[in-house]
Each structure stands twice: as C-alpha cells, then as structure tokens.
Design a protein around this nucleic acid. Structure first.
Lengths: 219, 219
DNA sequence: GCGTTCCTGACAGCAAACTGAAAAAGACAG
DNA sequence: CTGTCTTTTTCAGTTTGCTGTCAGGAACGC
C-alpha cells in the first residue's frame, strides 16, 4: 500500500514512517503542503495521512482541493488534542477518519486497515446503465460503448449523484447542492449547462428531463 | 417526515422538538435506549436523531443493532464537544451525520434535510397497485408493468394525492387543491383532463370514477 | 327517452429547458 | 510573472413540450 504522510513534526513523522515501513507499507513523507502537492501530482497514493497544522498553509485546503479535483484517495487526518473544530471541518472537507495526537501506532495501523478495507472491499462499484454506459463510482470513471470518457470534476459531481439514484428524479435544487457547498446559491442555469454537456459526452438518452422538477437517469 | 429523537437532556430535547414541530415535522421523543427500542419497533421513522450519551446504555449499541437488523433509517448522532472518539465510532457504526452540542437549530434542520434527501433514495416506500403499477412516492417515479412512465408535474401532483389514500374516494374539489395553491379557483374541467391523461399513461383501470363525487385508486 | 356528468382530442400561449458562444477563473509549464 | 490551455459560469436566442381551455361526443342514471 502506498501511503503519503504529510507531517512537519519530524519526530512524529519518523516514528510513523518506521512503524509503517516495518509493517511492509511504502511510505513517502513530505513536511509541507507545497511538497505534498508535488508528490501527489507524481504518484497515486492509496492513503493520505494528513496533519492539519502545517507551517506553510492549511492542510485542509490541500484536502479540499484534492476532493474538488475529484480524487477519492482515502484520507486520515492527524490533529492535536485541542483542535476540535479542525477535526469537524476535516471530516466535512472529505476526510475519512482522524487520529488525535498523540496516538498509538497500533491504532494508526488499525485505522489504516479499516479505511483501505472500506475502499477496496466495496461490493459493486460498477453500475451499468442500459444505454451503453458503464460507471465505476469508486474509480470515478465512465465508459461509453466501452470507450473511456473524461469528465471534469463538476460534470462528475453531477453525474455521480444521479447514477447513485437511478430511476429517481432529482430536483435541480438537489443537484446544485452536489455542485456547491451546502447553502451556496447559484443564480443561473449551471445545472442545465452541465446536463447539456454530459449529454453531449454520454449520449442524449442517459439523462432524462423531468420538466418543472429536475433530471433522472434510468435504472 | 417522522423523526425519532433519542435524548435524555430534557431542555435540549424540548428545544429540538419545538423547533422541528414548528417546521412541520412529526417528532417522537424518547429519553432512553429501551424506550427508543420500543418506539422503533412500533413505527417506521424517516430519521433518527440519536444522542450517544444515554443513562441506560450506549446509544451506539442501539444504532449498531438497528444496522445489523438491516434497517437503513438515516441517523444523525448528537455528541458533546469532547467526545470525539464517539463520533468516529458513530460514523463507523452506521451513522450518516453528526452534530456537536451545542448546535444551532437551523443547522439541525439543514442536516436533516440533507440526510433525508440523500436517503430518500434507497430503501424506498414502494406502493404497489394491483394493476401492474408501482409507485415510488419519494423518488417520484412510476412503473407500469416494470416500465418507467413519465409524469408531468401536474399529473404527478394529482396521482400522488390519490396513491397516498388508496381505496379512498377524493372529490374533485380536493384534487383541485392538490393542483393549485389553496383557494385558487379554476373554472374548467382540469381535473377530468388530467385524470384522462393519467389513464392514458397508466391504464384505464388505475383510476376509478365515482360519479357525482370524484375519483379513487384501489388499494 | 332526457338531462347530467364525464371523457378526450385539439390547440394556442407561455414558461422551462437547451445550447452555442464568450467572458471569467483557474491550472500549469516555462 | 507570462502566455496558453482547460474548466466554469454567465448570457441570450431558440426550441420544446406542459398547461388550461373548450367543444363535441360518450356514458350514465333515471
């Protein structure tokens, strides 16, 4: 398992790395956000271990950014005892779990195992729509007639929501919430535009319009 | 929406209940785990609001138990500021979201809406009429002989009303009110027209005419 | 039979949705 | 930083198809 550890306290970082290396994991280490960004660009990690309290920027922004770009890499955040709000925000920003410093190294292993299990052991990540479109929800990829189609992050955010509820009509309101942070209202026809683009990429029949309500993909 | 609130701090419980009742939700309250178990046996709730720190047992066990029995009822857990591990465990045990006490009542509403929307999907209340028609009230979808049928919003508004009261005859007056806001008089035969359209889409037998009174769908 | 109630095809008006294009914002390499 | 390329958002012109209305005919109760 490839693990990226983002942590600036060297003592802790070393301890963690040693422990994980001893357990047979591949660990890369970066001590800053910029550093981490570079490493993330170069490699596909299986898990991200992220300290939120870094010198050169919020680790949280790093995570949020990743998620916005569509990465689904599992992430465990590390925070100090007294920074509760960070922890909450972290989970909201897309973290999968967190550990409070100081933590037991065995607990770290356990959580790592849990997180990666959750991601690999998924029963049925492949959804097949009867219009020649296959979707890998976990892997974030779409095939049309067997050919891979690239979706931008917004396109995916929308499509993901709809595919997860096939046969059901989703209101524009609901779909907007998939696109933007909770309350954030948008005053134009963004959803329509993205539906239009998705249709161009995936075919007209994939997304049905339910006039006056929203959209739907068939079961 | 039927909500079960499991909370032993009376002041908080009352505040929550008042707020939700004011928002038009149906709230039941229980102050202990045993109590909650009894209520859960009797009623199908749409959302469970669960305090983890209860006098007579772990709220967590209640949740885990529910999940083990296959219930997918969305659950939001309520925890105190300093019980972080509970929160993680809660999410692992099958909770859908959490709120840290003290929380803003409006945030509670927002999360409730989000969670129930998210879940208005999977385990759906499917109504099955014995004429080859299935209706997913939450997902706004109708199947005729297994085939998805598109309804316009007016058509749905009407049908929705009738399906919710199977076997009951609804007057045209009542049905008009489903179509238009409150008193808004309409001077033509709109209801008849829509019944006609629904029959064409769903089959003649779905909606029965009760001459001089109104319409009815069979249970 | 008669009167009443209900059904249904047709249609014009209009709000909702679609879509191409362009501006704005962001990502990235040099 | 600069220029280039991609993605996101906005806007406006066009298209689509829902809606309410009406009218002629069918069904019903008596």
């Amino acid at each position: 398992m490839r693990i990226l550890l983002v942590e600036d306290e060297m003592m802790l970082a070393d301890a963690v790395r040693d422990h994980l290396l001893a357990a047979g994991e591949a660990v890369d280490h970066s001590a800053s956000v910029v550093d981490a960004e570079i490493m993330l660009r170069g490699t596909n990690y299986d898990v991200l271990l992220l300290d939120l309290n870094l010198p050169d920027g919020k680790g949280l922004d790093l995570l949020r950014d990743l998620r916005r770009k569509g990465s689904a890499t599992p992430c465990i955040i590390l925070t100090a005892q007294d920074q509760i709000s960070d922890r909450i925000e972290g989970l909201n920003a897309g973290a999968d779990d967190y550990l409070v410093k100081p933590f037991d190294l065995n607990e770290l292993s356990a959580r790592l195992a849990a997180v990666s299990r959750r991601y690999s052991g998924n029963p049925n990540p492949f959804v097949e729509l009867d219009v020649g479109v296959e979707v890998d929800l976990a892997g974030r990829s779409v095939l049309r007639d067997g050919v891979q189609v690239d979706l931008t992050s917004r396109e995916w955010a929308l499509f993901d929501q709809m595919v997860k509820r096939p046969g059901q009509t989703l209101s524009k309101r609901q779909l907007e919430e998939a696109l933007y942070e909770f309350g954030a209202e948008i005053e134009s026809n963004t959803v329509e535009v993205y539906v239009s683009r998705l249709r161009r990429k995936l075919g007209k029949e994939v997304i049905k319009t339910v006039r006056g309500v929203g959209y739907r993909v068939e079961g």
